[in-house]
Amino acid sequence: YWITCCPTCDVDINTWVPFYSTELNKPAMIYCSHGDGHWVHAQCMDLAERTLIHLSAGSNKYYCNEHVEIARALHTP
C-alpha cells in the first residue's frame, strides 16, 4: 500500500488520511490491467468513490491514467 504508484503519487505513510469511506487504515488500491498489471492508489487516479466501488465489485478491467490511452489505441480498429 505504501508505494509510489505513479509519477504524481502523493500517498505517504506519514501523512496519509482516509479519503474514501471504505478506507480505514490503508489507502484504496485498484489493479491496472495493462501488461503484467500493477497496483495504483484510487486517490492518485482521481477515481470517484462510486466508480471505485463499482470497479471493486465487478470483474471489469481498469487501466490507470498512464495506460488508458495505450489500452484505447489497442482496442480501436
Rank of each mutant, 00 (worst) to 15 (best):
39 W>S: 06
31 Y>C: 11
34 H>G: 12
39 W>R: 06
62 Y>V: 03
38 H>V: 01
76 T>L: 11
24 L>T: 09
16 W>R: 03
34 H>T: 05
3 I>Q: 06
12 D>V: 04
63 Y>L: 10
58 G>K: 10
2 W>L: 02
33 S>K: 08
60 N>M: 09
43 Q>M: 10
39 W>N: 05
51 T>F: 08
33 S>F: 11
58 G>F: 05
61 K>I: 15
64 C>E: 00
43 Q>E: 03
27 P>T: 04
54 H>W: 10
25 N>C: 04
12 D>E: 14
54 H>N: 10
37 G>A: 02
71 A>E: 14
2 W>S: 05
66 E>L: 12
32 C>W: 00
73 A>Y: 08
49 E>R: 03
10 D>N: 13
27 P>G: 00
31 Y>E: 11
68 V>I: 04
71 A>N: 08
28 A>M: 05
76 T>W: 04
20 Y>A: 02
63 Y>F: 12
17 V>C: 15
57 A>I: 15
46 D>M: 14
31 Y>L: 12
75 H>R: 12
60 N>D: 12
1 Y>H: 03
28 A>C: 08
34 H>M: 10
54 H>K: 15
3 I>T: 09
31 Y>G: 04
46 D>I: 07
29 M>I: 05
71 A>M: 08
56 S>Q: 11
40 V>Q: 02
29 M>S: 15
50 R>V: 14
51 T>L: 13
36 D>H: 05
65 N>E: 14
40 V>F: 00
51 T>Q: 07
1 Y>M: 10
53 I>D: 06
3 I>D: 12
62 Y>L: 04
58 G>I: 12
32 C>I: 00
76 T>F: 03
16 W>T: 07
64 C>T: 00
8 T>Q: 05
10 D>W: 14
70 I>T: 06
33 S>H: 08
40 V>K: 04
62 Y>E: 02
59 S>N: 05
63 Y>P: 02
42 A>L: 01
16 W>C: 02
36 D>G: 11
26 K>A: 05
20 Y>V: 01
39 W>M: 09
25 N>V: 14
14 N>K: 12
4 T>Y: 07
20 Y>W: 06
69 E>Y: 04
74 L>G: 15
16 W>H: 06
42 A>W: 01
77 P>C: 05
52 L>G: 03
52 L>H: 02
32 C>L: 00
4 T>I: 11
67 H>G: 08
33 S>M: 08
51 T>A: 11
32 C>V: 01
59 S>A: 14
28 A>I: 07
48 A>L: 12
39 W>F: 09
59 S>E: 12
60 N>G: 11
22 T>W: 08
23 E>D: 15
42 A>S: 06
11 V>C: 13
57 A>D: 13
17 V>R: 11
67 H>P: 03
13 I>M: 04
21 S>T: 04
32 C>R: 00
10 D>C: 13
20 Y>S: 02
50 R>P: 15
41 H>G: 00
27 P>L: 00
47 L>V: 13
52 L>Y: 04
50 R>F: 11
59 S>T: 13
41 H>P: 01
32 C>D: 00
76 T>E: 15
61 K>H: 15
3 I>E: 09
49 E>M: 07
41 H>D: 01
41 H>R: 01
55 L>W: 09
28 A>H: 05
75 H>T: 14
62 Y>G: 02
59 S>C: 12
14 N>R: 07
26 K>G: 07
28 A>W: 08
52 L>Q: 12
36 D>M: 08
21 S>Y: 11
51 T>R: 13
4 T>N: 13
29 M>C: 02
16 W>E: 00
38 H>N: 01
68 V>A: 07
59 S>W: 05
62 Y>N: 02
48 A>I: 13
60 N>H: 09
42 A>C: 08
18 P>N: 02
2 W>T: 05
41 H>W: 01
66 E>N: 03
76 T>I: 07
30 I>M: 05
17 V>E: 14
28 A>G: 01
68 V>C: 11
45 M>G: 03
18 P>R: 03
36 D>F: 05
60 N>T: 11
31 Y>F: 10
22 T>V: 10
33 S>Q: 09
17 V>D: 04
53 I>W: 08
65 N>Y: 04
8 T>K: 08
3 I>M: 10
71 A>P: 11
26 K>P: 01
72 R>I: 08
75 H>F: 09
44 C>W: 00
21 S>H: 14
30 I>F: 04
76 T>A: 12
54 H>C: 12
42 A>V: 05
11 V>E: 00
56 S>I: 08
3 I>H: 05
3 I>V: 10
62 Y>I: 04
53 I>R: 12
13 I>W: 08
37 G>E: 01
71 A>T: 14
70 I>S: 07
